[in-house]
């Protein structure tokens, strides 16, 4: 047991909830890319986690290029510059790469049996992983701590919520709100919703479905890029296999929330973050995976379409 758990159980619980919420928001950001693509083309894009990993590698490259190399640079010009460049370059890079893979690999298989693009996605996942391995090698690489200090913003509560945690919240929440507004109110967003619900009818309405699909891959990729910046700055360690585990959590979050459902992905991400943090604290970190997937199975038994999935059934 951690000391905090022994001395102040309530504060400890609150602390684990906070940890769960913050990491859950990160999973949610990645989960959105799975869920949006699935919603439109019914493809589980297995390469999405690895796309996120390549985003992290690129962010690292940006730090090196700008000369923001260690904690000592935090708050200095190079660090601010590095973060600004990362926030610009990582989403653009991940969006462009996701789009390119769709064009080259998935699009030609659009009318093929569903297994064909799925297996291709697994292939792309391994290719990305190998690129990561080739790019930065097989070991963990430390990612410079570029955020100023670890000031506790809720001092006196017995819990910790640092500037770093706040950074995650300040990036992820507005991104998700922006995405929700985009999908609800813009013409392209409406076209995406219609295409997800019935692609043939969408075409009959005059929607350019190819363009909608391309936009979906681009937006999903951009979200993975945003997640990669936040992840690097938050966890300060990256490696070529990180896409697999984080991708798996995120994918699970998407399924848990109801695959294809945007608020569902956010809810699923937060639920998984909470299970992982609380389970790790009270049951044991070695049980996290078993717990997450155990709960997933139980929830799917009662709600096969996920927590928020397909509440209205399509009539034939």
């Amino acid at each position: 047991m951690t000391p905090l758990l022994a001395t102040d159980p309530a504060a400890a619980f609150g602390q684990f909830v906070l940890i769960g919420l913050v990491s859950g928001l990160l999973y949610a950001l990645i989960a959105l890319g799975y869920t949006m693509v699935y919603g439109i083309v019914e493809l589980i894009n297995f390469a999405h986690g690895d796309l996120f990993m390549l985003g992290c590698m690129l962010c690292l490259q940006v730090c090196l290029a700008v000369g923001a190399l260690s904690e000592a640079d935090a708050g200095t010009g190079p660090a601010v510059l590095a973060i600004a460049i990362m926030l610009l370059v990582a989403p653009v890079f991940c969006a462009a790469l996701n789009l390119a893979v769709d064009r080259a690999v998935y699009k030609p298989l659009r009318t093929a049996p569903k297994l064909a693009p799925l297996v291709s996605a697994i292939g792309v996942s391994f290719i990305f992983m190998n690129i990561g391995l080739f790019w930065r090698g097989p070991t963990d690489i430390s990612f410079p701590k570029l955020l100023l200090g670890e000031t506790n913003l809720i001092e006196g509560s017995g819990m910790g919520f640092t500037t770093k945690d706040l950074m995650v919240v300040l990036v992820t929440i507005p991104t998700m709100i922006g995405l929700t507004l985009f999908v609800r109110y813009t013409s392209l967003g409406k076209a995406m919703r219609a295409t997800a619900q019935n692609p043939t009818a969408a075409q009959l309405m005059g929607i350019n479905v190819d363009r909608v699909i391309a936009a979906t891959f681009a937006i999903g990729g951009a979200l993975a890029g945003v997640a990669s910046v936040v992840y690097g700055l938050y966890f300060n360690s990256v490696n070529y296999q990180m896409g697999f585990q984080n991708g798996l959590y995120a994918f699970t979050a998407a399924v848990l929330g109801g695959i294809g459902n945007i608020p569902g992905a956010v809810l699923g991400g937060v639920v998984i973050g909470l299970i992982k943090a609380l389970g790790g604290a009270y049951i044991g970190a070695e049980w996290s995976e078993a717990l997450i997937f155990g709960i997933l199975i139980v929830i799917l038994l009662f709600r096969p379409n996920g927590l928020l999935g397909a509440r209205t059934r399509e009539k034939v």
Binding site: A194, N198, A201, L204, G206, T312, V316
Partner: peptide
């Protein structure tokens, strides 16, 4: 002329099986 341009020319279809957007409201 691609599918998405045809309706712009004034040719619209109510398809077999209705193909309503199930999770959009009637108004939407």
């Amino acid at each position: 002329v691609p599918a998405h341009m045809i309706v712009r020319l004034g040719l619209a279809q109510s398809p077999e099986g209705r193909k309503i957007f199930p999770r959009l409201s009637v108004l939407e």
